[in-house]
């Protein structure tokens, strides 16, 4: 990479000002380690930025600022040890006074312990609620994902079926299978084939319906399908003069069992 161009892009200035995107920030941090000349330029720019800010400050700062800050830092450090020191440092001003003070301190301590327990429980409850909500949220997200997928499948189907090249073929029941009925939608251009079952008996365990195209007297496997009440896409079929459905062993067969023929329709 060209270091000079990189410097001239102004990226180091914005890195120092904290204005870059997180991604760019990581990139600059990485390059700074690899290129000492970038580090040098960065320090120069930082010095200029500091001078610019200092032009808005008096020649010397009020000493009280630092003194006060250090006092507050010291007080803050002592505060965290406060609970242990309070009881130790009680003044011994007569026995009864001390007793009262100790009793009062014990009550205060008990009260504080009680409050701590309550606060801790509250925090725990809040955390478990957050967890529950997060879980719920991810369940919703998953459901939405499924809905979206379903929706886009449906949308694709509507689009596919509204194509003017789609032929609707009604497959009627053959003798002995009265009542069976299915529709095939076959696109003679794109060769896509869809099956929509109006009525077929539930197949026995281990069996599946298989769709066949017939062309010049030969059956062509168009794939197996389940009865799920939806329009399903089957294998693409190049040429067809008729379609038929037979009941076959699950997974389908290379050639149809004509004794188990249910419906048949010509294109």
């Amino acid at each position: 990479m060209n270091i000079k161009e990189y410097i001239e892009s102004g990226v180091l200035e914005l890195y120092l000002l904290g204005s870059l995107s997180a991604e760019e920030e990581r990139e600059v941090a990485k390059l700074l380690k690899e290129h000492p000349e970038l580090q040098k330029e960065l320090e120069r720019i930082e010095a200029d930025l500091i001078s610019l800010a200092e032009s808005n400050a008096p020649e010397s700062l009020n000493e009280a600022i630092l003194v006060g800050a250090l006092e507050r830092i010291k007080a803050g450090a002592e505060e965290s040890n406060a609970t242990t020191t309070v009881i130790k440092e009680l003044p011994v001003a007569g026995k009864s006074w001390l007793n009262y003070a100790l009793i009062a301190a014990s009550f205060a301590l008990l009260l504080s312990l009680g409050l701590n327990v309550k606060l801790y429980t509250n925090v725990q409850e809040a955390e478990s609620q957050i967890l529950a909500l997060q879980n719920q949220n991810s369940v919703f997200a998953e459901e939405l994902q499924i809905q979206n997928t379903n929706y886009s499948i449906k949308e694709k189907q509507v689009f596919a079926l509204s194509d003017p090249n789609v032929l609707r073929i009604k497959l009627n029941a053959v003798p002995g299978k009265e009542g069976a009925l299915a529709m095939v939608y076959w696109n003679s251009e794109s060769k896509e084939t869809y099956i929509s079952v109006q009525n077929l008996p539930e197949p026995p365990e281990g069996m599946q319906y298989q769709l066949w195209a017939l062309y010049d007297g030969a059956p062509i496997d168009a794939g197996v399908f389940d009865l799920n009440g939806e329009i399903q896409e089957n294998k693409t079929i190049e040429n067809a003069q008729a379609f038929a459905i037979t009941l076959e062993e699950a997974g389908g067969k290379p050639s149809p069992n004509l004794e188990q023929l249910y419906v048949y329709g010509e294109v």
């Binding site: 032009s55 808005n56 630092l66």
Partner: peptide, 19 residues
């Protein structure tokens, strides 16, 4: 060691004041 704050005050205090 909180004397870090004194060093920060001396080196960067005026710049931070300006900001």
């Amino acid at each position: 060691d909180s004397s870090a704050i004194k060093l920060i005050h001396d080196a960067y205090g005026r710049a931070l004041y300006g900001v």
